[in-house]
Nucleic acid binder design. Structure first.
Lengths: 215, 215
DNA sequence: GTAGCGATGTATCGGGCCGATACATCGAGG
DNA sequence: CCTCGATGTATCGGCCCGATACATCGCTAC
């Protein structure tokens, strides 16, 4: 799973480990908080051994700070790596439908063809529906055996399942009709913020603005 | 984490591995689908070595089927194990607030004193709030850098965070006012099912049932 | 000036947990 | 009779995590 994510990010631009971890954290923030270095470095080593990435020291593209000879290692994807990435993106096994696997695949959906997107979305939906049925069974059949807290936990979990199924259904509908993914209006809207100049790479300012939350 | 769960279940009644796994699955169904045997058996061995549980072969409490000499191993909690369980229940480290840790602790809240319950609930809330703030940051600051699918993933994650915080807040309020946990009315309702006879400990019938679980 | 601090950066180690796999018994149905 | 699914115990390779160690850079504070 991590392999896919790393290959995907390195396909955009070469990076060193620290940077990679940060990008991973923002791109997959929903899935896992932050990848551990105890995972990242061994994985990078593995990918390197397999020939999917190469390392080159002291990249030249460092202008602002960093003008010294510290041992920064920049990783770059190879042709084999790109091929591998495409393979991993297209093929969907059972591990594609668990929380982590689905999250990573979804995060790279903009580089996945529609047929695969639909396949993954539907596989994930089936998975969640199964979990949901399991919880319903427990709540209706085993309810008497369980204490109030355990029951409450199941209820909350069931709720989350139902919500996710609805979300997936919406996404599937959108995919089928060829619309963009983000048709969910009102899910996230800043009150009166100027967020036009996004889609450009940068925004130089950044005022105090302490996290307004939905009106 | 698993250690806590196993000790907790064995405190209710002695069990063998297979049964333990099933109980784990229904009690922690929200948290992890089903514990792997590749996890369970080594953990049992560890607990045994540590002196928290003991194994005894071929339990006598097997009346209906099972009258043979197969190597069924029944695990029983020891006095040390009970002490250990109480310790684990009471103390809350950082791992108590991640998804798995919190879920297990919550599942045993009926055996936790109120002060600890509140501490854990609040710690979890803080954790989720941090995750939520991270997602809000990404959505407001880094939005231009990310594609529509990644953004949608973040939105969905943010939504889940906000929902969970609300859930936790409700639970905290209930704890403080001394009420039972399940005040969430209408969260779970089958269309026209008769599920009155819950809350009694038992229901004697249920005929066909090969291998009843607990009479 | 210099001492500390937080961010940047690379790397390893022990251990928990998972999926795959192997093997064996039992009751039920074809 | 014979296979199939549930019950049951157990191991192995491998991913991934948290803790830890070490080193440099730029900033602020004394």
């Amino acid at each position: 799973m991590l392999e896919l994510a790393i290959l995907g990010l390195l396909q955009e631009t070469p990076m060193h480990g620290y940077e990679l971890r940060k990008e991973l954290a923002t791109k997959l923030g929903t899935i896992r908080a932050a990848i551990s270095y105890g995972t990242l470095y061994p994985t990078l080593k593995r990918l390197q051994t397999a020939g999917f990435i190469t390392e080159s020291a002291s990249d030249p593209s460092m202008i602002p700070p960093m003008t010294s000879k510290r041992g920064r290692v920049v990783y770059k994807i190879t042709a084999d790596g790109k091929e591998r990435f495409a393979d991993l993106l297209a093929q969907a096994g059972p591990e594609t439908y668990d929380d982590a696997g689905f999250g990573v695949h979804f995060a790279f959906f903009s580089r996945t063809d529609r047929a695969t997107r639909l396949r993954i979305l539907e596989g994930r939906r089936r998975r969640i529906e199964e979990r949901r049925e399991g919880l319903r069974d427990v709540l209706s059949r085993a309810a008497g055996r369980l204490d109030a807290y355990t029951l409450e936990l199941q209820r909350h979990g069931l709720d989350a399942c139902e919500r996710e199924v609805r979300w997936l259904e919406e996404l599937i509908t959108n995919e089928r009709s060829g619309r963009a993914p983000a048709a969910s209006a009102g899910t996230f809207d800043l009150p009166a913020e100027p967020l036009q100049e996004r889609a450009a790479g940068e925004s130089p300012q950044e005022q105090p603005r302490p996290h307004q939350d939905r009106p």
